[in-house]
Write a protein that binds this DNA or RNA. Structure first.
Length: 634
RNA sequence: GCUGGAGUAGCUCAACUGGUAGAGCAGGUCACUCGUAAUGAUCAGGUAGUGGGUUCGACUCCCAUCUCCAGCUCCA
């Protein structure tokens, strides 16, 4: 009997009898043998002890393999669970998967974990790692497993096992600790080189708020210490850039207990940035053939019944005027639909692109509010495109082009996701299929890769979501394109076709920023509060060296202001160094110092944020420089 | 909404086991008139998120409520 094993480089190794992954590694070399964590046999991840019994393709996983990360984290989760069972009595294990940035493990225990506990658990974990305990795989039938779990009283595991189809399952044992688990795992606990417990939190069993609240411990692990440190540094960086903190420090916006949760108040500096963003949007929409419109804040409740929002229990606010019930708009589409309906439309009128900076209100649950990123009242750069079915593709292409140019303006990369029909939805199956196909076809034609997010569409149609990546690698959902056959039918929209018959238009809902408020919050973190000139609330600050230059400084500020530049003056009775420091702390792009020399020569000594002194330039040159940078959105 | 934590001057924070609150920065005033990241002096500022309760007495204990933070669930 002979077994041939094909390695990723297509080379083939032959063995006389079944071999384990580890043995294959040993036959290649001692270095690899030592580094081997696990293997991938015919696309399936397995332990290093997995016995290969027939011809197979094998990839050996070492700490350098990207596929190892998940493995390392999952095994670290097991070590966490082992440590917790050592330190706490009466613990029930629930579930402990690896996740995008690390891992967690959910426990059911009577007390809640304190920060001190976290330190204790971490210490115990380090002990377990130092012990280099092997992970051993035990296989058995489902019935045997069930008996074992019942004997141990593992109620959560029993519930999970009941949902499993396979007849054979596995357990993993490391020392005294045994856990029902699919695996695979590292060879032994000593292979864990860099981990950290991050936080504890409550989490419902299976995410269901009616089920018991468990204690979740979050942590992360990496193959190498420096990778862990880089990750922890990134977390610190995210804290440093937190838009809620910067918003307060830079005096951009505030929230108030008296006003209410989730309702943002923009201060002058924050509003300056908002207006700059709105100006960009308005100009860009008009240039792309959209027509700006304005709808009312509240609409009679019957409108929301026709649209389906009411029956769908969309989280809206309602109010009454003389016994007539009104709904405060959570979306802008209805007024746009009424504009379409205001007169008979011909196929010649389509596509009709209506755009509005529409402020909407949604009754978000209190626990989800989060700075500017999750509000109860926010403004969307919302547009609705009414078009012929055969215009759908080109319209979607146009929107994607818009998204692309906007993302590159801010330096965001992005990826696409198509979300399909959710459980709570309206419309016929055919319409959903047609709409979903249209979205896929467009992206296919454009050659753009995308993921499918099943069941995550809007209630009236499927959507393309755009996830952007910011300066420190986090992703955010902002832009979305939704294809809708339902609302045109519900509101009985029609156009006169070439043959004189009445036909139904298709509707696209789309946003580019999504919520201006959220986008602003993301920008604050993206730029770490140091906005480019075109967005900065104060684009240049003029600082006279001493009182004698104040009149000249006022003239400089005034001339720049006349040119439409956001300029201010700091002629306070403070030392120059002090005022430079203040300007730097406020992250103002340019500081213009004027002393005796500048006043005599009609010049300004320019200092750029983060870059320092640029030397003196003529006032006229400064005006042109700033005007051009602002116009080019630099 | 749920679980846990928090709420002291504009901001950041402090005050032993209950005995009616302090500092730095910011702000006002004065002096200095200053050349690229903190000049000095001085003054003012809070009754402790809000409402109840316990107590001779509460910032400190209890209850309710509001808001914030972390997570769950949900979402632009």
């Amino acid at each position: 009997m002979s077994i041939s094993i094909t390695l990723p480089d297509k080379s083939v190794l032959n063995f006389d009898q079944p071999v384990t992954v580890q043995e294959v590694a040993e036959s290649i070399g001692p270095g690899l043998a030592k580094a081997t964590l696990a293997g991938i046999v015919n696309d399936k991840k397995v332990d290093n002890g997995f016995l290969i019994e027939r011809d197979a393709a094998l990839k050996i996983l070492t700490p350098d393999s990207p596929e190892s990360l998940e493995l390392i984290r999952h095994s670290t989760a097991h070590v966490l669970a082992q440590a917790v069972t050592r330190l706490f009595s009466k613990v029930q294990l629930a579930i402990g998967p690896s996740i995008k940035e690390g891992f967690y493990y959910d426990f059911d225990l009577e007390t809640t974990f304190s920060p001190d506990d976290l330190v204790r658990i971490e210490k115990e974990m380090n002990k377990i790692i130092a012990e280099k305990i092997p992970f051993q795989r035990l296989e058995m039938t489902k019935a045997e497993a069930m008996a074992l779990l019942k004997e141990r009283g593992d109620t959560y595991k029993i519930e999970m096992l009941e949902g499993i189809e396979d007849d054979h399952v596995s357990f993993y044992q490391q020392g005294e600790f045994l856990d029902w688990c699919r695996g695979p795992h590292l060879p032994d606990t000593g292979k864990i080189k860099a981990f950290k417990l991050l936080k504890t939190a409550g989490a419902y069993w299976r995410g269901d708020e009616k089920r018991p609240m468990l204690q979740r411990v979050y942590g992360t692990a990496f193959p190498k210490k420096d990778e862990l440190e880089a990750y922890l540094h990134r977390l610190e960086e995210a804290v440093r850039r937190d838009h809620r903190k910067l918003g307060k420090e830079l005096d951009l916006f505030s929230f108030s207990d008296e006003v209410g949760a989730g309702l943002v108040i923009y201060h002058p500096k924050g509003a300056a940035i908002r207006y700059a963003l709105e100006d960009y949007l308005k100009k860009e929409h008009v240039a792309r053939g959209y027509q700006p419109v304005i709808g009312p804040q509240i609409l009679k409740v019957d409108m929301w019944k026709t649209s389906g929002h009411y029956q769908m229990k969309y989280p809206m606010y309602f109010t009454k005027i003389e016994e007539q019930e009104y709904g405060i708009k959570p979306m802008n589409c209805l007024a746009h639909i009424m504009i379409y309906k205001a007169k008979t439309r011909s196929y010649r009128d389509l596509p009709l692109r209506l755009f509005e900076l529409g402020t909407v209100h949604r009754h978000e649950k209190s626990g989800v509010l989060h700075g500017l990123l999750r509000l109860r009242g926010f403004t969307q750069d919302d547009a609705h495109i009414f078009c012929l079915p055969d215009q759908l593709l080109s319209e979607i292409k146009g929107i994607i082009d818009f998204v692309d140019s906007t993302m590159s303006l801010f330096g965001f990369t992005y990826e696409l996701e198509i979300s399909t029909r959710p459980e709570k939805s309206i419309g016929s199956d055919e319409d959903w299929e047609q709409a979903t196909a249209a979205l896929k076809e467009t992206l296919d034609q454009l050659g753009l890769p995308y993921d499918i997010n099943e069941g995550d569409g809007a209630f009236y149609g499927p959507k393309i979501d755009i996830k952007l990546h910011d300066a420190i690698g986090r992703s955010w959902q902002c832009a979305t394109i939704q294809c809708d056959f339902s609302l045109p039918a519900r509101f009985d929209l029609s156009y006169v076709a070439t043959d004189g018959s009445l036909k139904r238009p298709v509707m696209l809902h789309r946003v580019i920023f999504g919520s201006l408020d959220r986008f602003f919050g993301i920008l604050i973190e993206h730029y770490a509060g140091a906005f480019p000139v075109w967005l900065a609330p104060t684009q240049v600050r003029i600082i006279p060296v001493s009182e004698q230059q104040t009149p000249y400084a006022e003239r400089v500020a005034d001339q720049l202001r006349q040119a439409g530049i956001r300029v201010d003056l700091d002629s306070r009775n403070e030392k120059l160094g002090y005022r430079i420091r203040e300007g730097a702390k406020e992250k103002i792009p340019y500081l213009g110092v004027v002393g005796e020399r500048e006043a005599a020569n009609n010049q300004v000594a320019l200092r750029k944020h983060k870059e320092g002194d640029l030397g003196s330039i003529d006032l006229e040159a400064l005006r042109e420089k700033l005007t051009s940078e602002i116009a080019n959105r630099q």
